[in-house]
Write a protein that binds this DNA or RNA. Structure first.
Lengths: 269, 269
DNA sequence: CGCCATCTTGAGGTCTATCAATTTCAGTGG
DNA sequence: CCACTGAAATTGATAGACCTCAAGATGGCG
């Protein structure tokens, strides 16, 4: 980490259950992957220069809208979703603070999915063209964005595995463990503001079956999801139960810092 | 297109049913998205300098192997897949000629999935480090790679929609139409060298159910999949039936060529 | 001709969806 | 403080989609 950049990080405050940096949510995410120069930090700061609040349910863009801007998420939860002709929904991505939302849309003239706030959120819009600027001004940031997208992609492939091949209970367990891992919390109890119908739409299940299956997981002493919170009752049991391996959430640290790290792909949390 | 680059394209030959460029498979793909300079073409040519043939079934890398190199696919079909503890498989991506395989792995020290040849293939390996070089030497190529990844990502999200919310018949129809669109063939009959168990593993179905459902689609006069070929019997009917919209396969043309194109997101093929 | 992989077909069972009724609970106003 | 309200969650009953197991058909290939 660059010494001159330290001041960016020293105002972190306990915010709910997550350590949120008052200056830059994005940078603290990125900086875990590569060491950022002051110039690079300057470029990234432009990504969250314009904070705006929206209430739960706000549609930041519709499916099929022209792709004009992206948003960084600095507070709250959001998701991308599609509506099918028959009225079914499919949730594609769940966004947590520190993420840039909508990078996937960059390659298209019109959005491939809707973007919706799941809680009250704070987002910072920035124009599409700024990303092009960023690519031109810093090859390392281009790499960084690319790496972040590989992580997004791995979350999508892991979802395909869940929906394609895991039974409902394992799907739910895996989903919750992914969220926990992404939140970076070590606590066995954390906020989880997703309603059951939304979880169902993320995992290809009906809300009724989500309810039943969560009851089952509770009776089995694995986890308890209710009232906007998750309580992990048996961490090891859960990991074992759904075969969770957090490797797919861990892009390279200090890239491209040379050698491959030793095999860290354990089942540990 | 740059005049000096024309010679790269004038040796295209009819190869089976697809137009394959004898000089560079990759470049002809990329060049549809942005105009490439001679320098950029030179950089890209390094990606297919070292062609090698492999037989059907060859494992190019195992799940969990160190990420040391990527492969461009210049002939044949391949796929990425995961094996689950219970022995189930999930096919994640199907690769066709002209694609760089494994970019998704760049962000990780070890591969997140296996890479397997589905037919006899010709692939060109190149070292991981070369991508970093490429990012440093050309911001436009970095952008281009990023755009290609947004397309990969959209194929993954579309698969999530299929597996999560579409019944088996629509899943199969959508999958076949995606392949047809990606092959770029206008013919209603084309090669399709995927066995039914593999299709099932891509779509979260059992091979038995794939067989039954394909029979159904044949009886309904929509399409006929057999003996390594697809015959589309009723193109409009198929598109209507599964709600196929090829927009997610069409990244920006001549990016960043300025204005957004008019709404091309029709249901046309 | 026989062998093997692949595909097909049948029967029965499991998982999940759907529909509908009930409960819970936070918010609201009397 | 308590009834009223509406969204969300739970529960029960039934139906349907898909899976598994197993037997038979098909077709390429030595």
């Amino acid at each position: 980490m660059v010494p001159g950049a330290v001041w960016h990080y020293d105002h972190a405050v306990e915010y709910g259950e997550r350590l949120v940096n008052t200056h830059s949510c994005i940078i603290s995410q990125f900086d875990r992957i590569i060491d950022l120069s002051p110039d690079e930090i300057g470029l990234l700061e432009a990504l969250e220069r314009d904070p705006r609040s929206h209430e739960e349910g706000k549609v930041l863009w519709e499916h099929g809208a022209p792709v004009r801007e992206f948003h960084t998420l600095t507070r709250g939860w959001a998701c991308s979703m599609c509506l099918l002709p028959g009225g079914e929904r499919q949730v594609l991505e769940v966004f947590l603070p520190g993420q840039i939302m909508g990078l996937r849309e960059l390659g298209f003239p019109r959005t491939q999915s809707a973007l919706v706030a799941l809680t009250e959120v704070e987002v910072c819009p920035f124009p599409r063209q700024y990303l092009v600027t960023l690519f031109q001004q810093s090859a390392r940031l281009a790499e960084l964005l690319f790496l972040l997208q590989t992580r997004e992609q791995s979350m999508l492939t892991e979802r395909i595995i869940s929906v394609g091949r895991r039974p409902a209970a394992e799907r739910l367990a895996h989903f919750v463990l992914e969220i926990k891992s992404r939140l970076g919390t070590t606590s066995l109890s954390f906020e989880f503001p997703l309603r059951q119908d939304l979880v169902g739409d993320a995992l290809g299940l009906s809300s009724v079956h989500v309810s039943r299956t969560l009851s089952q997981l509770r009776e089995d002493g694995l986890m308890c999801v209710s009232a906007g919170r998750v309580e992990i009752l048996d961490m090891d049991g859960l990991i074992e139960f759904c075969g969770f391996n957090r490797a797919y959430l861990e892009p390279l640290i200090n890239w491209p810092g040379g050698d491959l790290p030793p095999d860290r792909q354990g089942m540990t949390m």
